[in-house]
Design a protein around this nucleic acid. Structure first.
Lengths: 109, 109
DNA sequence: TCATACACTGTGTGTCACACACCATGTGAC
DNA sequence: GTCACATGGTGTGTGACACACAGTGTATGA
């Protein structure tokens, strides 16, 4: 594996954990999969649909999200939003992220 | 899985990608496994030996680290430090981390 | 008919944590 | 002096699990 591939693999790894946090945060207001993906991309967090959809289902099965299958603009879409438990977990994850972030700043300094 | 375990799993996931970055950064100056672990713990990044050692070997096999088996204080230790390629990758990862960090700040705001 | 919007699945690969194994050295109890 | 034990130090094997890739499929409007 060359340096480019090595870097790319590590980049993905680094980005990985932040996906959940970003998704949870965005779903404080209701969104459906596609619009969520677009919104996150605009903020600089891009992910494949094949990453996002399984993630949403996983988070829902963990009780952090609730979803509703609804029609809007003549299309059926699955709308997700944060559950109460999801809010609690998001708050804790946010705090944890601040901790990690601060630690990394120290090490990288 | 209760909320506590769910959070713990996500916390680990969030921390995951930062390990490589922290290790690479710390190895800008030479260290052996144990001292590296202690140093990182002091900065708030704790990891098991069974996580650290395989990680070190992996990074070395990717050419990002070099190691040397040396005796110090009557004990044989394996000393690691960043290779030139490692420095390059570290710089790029650092930049990428800043990007992700900024994106998360936006989403979390 | 072709692009875009939208949702989903199956599989492969790779990483981390847990539990464990192994050896060396210093130290205090007896 | 020797035995137990903590501490320092380096590893392995396995299982769980998450992401990315590639692909499937439907609906809509231009």
């Amino acid at each position: 594996m060359g340096e480019a591939e090595t870097f790319e693999a590590l980049r993905l790894e680094l980005r990985r954990g932040s996906l959940v946090l970003a998704v949870l945060a965005r779903l404080r207001s209701e969104q459906y999969g596609y619009s969520l993906r677009m919104a996150l991309a605009e903020d600089g967090i891009e992910m494949e649909e094949s990453t996002l959809y399984p993630l949403l289902r996983r988070l829902e099965s963990q009780g952090l999200l609730t979803s509703e299958w609804r029609e809007e603009a003549k299309r059926k879409k699955r709308f997700y939003r944060l559950s109460a438990e999801g809010e609690a977990v998001l708050a804790r994850l946010h705090a944890e992220w601040r901790r990690i972030s601060a630690s990394l700043e120290t090490v990288l300094a």
